[in-house]
């Protein structure tokens, strides 16, 4: 850990527009600082600025950036109307980490790529231009979709996958004012700038996350991983499906563990909407999701794994909501 300056913000305005690195729960940033993967010169602590409430927002919900993951997962409105979010949160990390981790911070967590963590290994995300160690290296946990020759890392979180499926909106404020970023567009693909994880600009801060009106229907978050808790997703599937007259009506799907961002394919959802469920249809939807998918060797299995998991999740969703 490099020596750094520390300041405590009293209001969001204290943190917005500064060049200091924002720290909230610190569950990811502190680890990275100890390893010197991150070396901020200044930290600004936003744990005391408020933004820690979950409030009704019309038919939707506004979640303050500092609402802890445990509190959000347990919130009665979330459990009742957006169960997908609650389930995704509870699938992540451990109770201790969830008690500490914040809504905004969870969106900002960085990849778990082994090479990103290893200062002696090449990593374009950590040191632009140094190369990618994971290509041709150990890449069991890496991306099968949307990767580039510069980076095959994945976004590791669960919460954002649910937010993406639920069409949530991230509300941010910067020196030039407030703006909204759809959860589906918050994280980036690596392209030739894998050092940039998301669309948050320098000086901007996440204020809240807004959930639109409840989708209803069956909501399932299935996380497939190497052990039953405290492991990142190899593949996760977030699904919300409503049924009408034996046909799928509204379908929302998002996938974790497979790309540099939560993966959402509207074409696959449209393919399912209005149709009667069938194994053959689920397969076609999976094929649409997996269009362009490419394994890196150790992670080749994620391609059939996603296909099988999606089919099982859809079969469960349509059965129980019928």
């Amino acid at each position: 850990m490099r020596a750094f300056d520390y300041a405590r913000a009293q209001t969001p305005a204290d943190a917005i527009g500064t060049d200091a690195r924002i720290i909230a729960g610190g569950t990811n940033l502190l680890d990275l600082m100890k390893l010197q993967v991150e070396t901020p010169e200044r930290l600004i602590d936003i744990n005391h600025v408020g933004l820690d409430q979950v409030e009704r927002d019309g038919d939707g919900l506004r979640i303050g950036a500092l609402v802890r993951n445990s509190d959000l997962a347990a919130h009665p409105a979330v459990r009742q109307d957006w169960p997908l979010l609650s389930r995704a949160l509870l699938a992540g990390a451990s109770p201790q980490l969830r008690n500490r981790a914040s809504t905004g911070g969870n969106l900002m967590q960085r990849t778990r790529c082994y090479y990103f963590y290893d200062l002696d290994a090449p990593c374009n995300k950590r040191v632009p231009g140094s190369g990618c160690g994971a290509i041709g290296g150990v890449n069991r946990i890496h991306a099968i979709l949307g990767a580039s020759e510069h980076c095959i890392a994945t976004y590791p979180g669960d919460m954002a996958v649910a937010l993406s499926a639920l069409d949530a909106v991230v509300e941010v404020e910067g020196p030039d004012g407030r703006r909204e970023i759809p959860a589906t567009a918050f994280h980036r693909l690596p392209g030739d700038r894998p050092d940039l994880d998301n669309e948050l600009q320098p000086g901007e801060m996440i204020l809240s996350v807004r959930l639109p009106a409840p989708l209803g229907g069956r909501q399932i978050y299935r996380k497939v991983r190497d052990r039953r808790s405290y492991a990142f997703a190899l593949v996760s599937v977030a699904a919300a499906v409503t049924m009408q007259g034996g046909r799928m009506d509204r379908v929302r799907l998002a996938f974790g563990g497979v790309a540099h961002k939560p993966w959402r394919v509207p074409a696959a959802e449209q393919m399912l909407a209005g149709q009667a469920p069938s194994a053959e249809l689920f397969d076609r939807a999976a094929a649409a999701v997996l269009e362009g998918a490419r394994g890196q060797g150790h992670n080749d299995f994620k391609i059939p794994l996603l296909r099988r998991t999606l089919a099982a999740v859809l079969a469960e969703a349509v059965q129980e909501s019928a």
Partner: peptide, 21 residues
Amino acid sequence: FHDARDGSFMNRDLAEYHVPA
């Protein structure tokens, strides 16, 4: 997980070296 190119231990923490939870 040893990187076959140089023998590096890649998963050298308890988040990525999995023991039963």
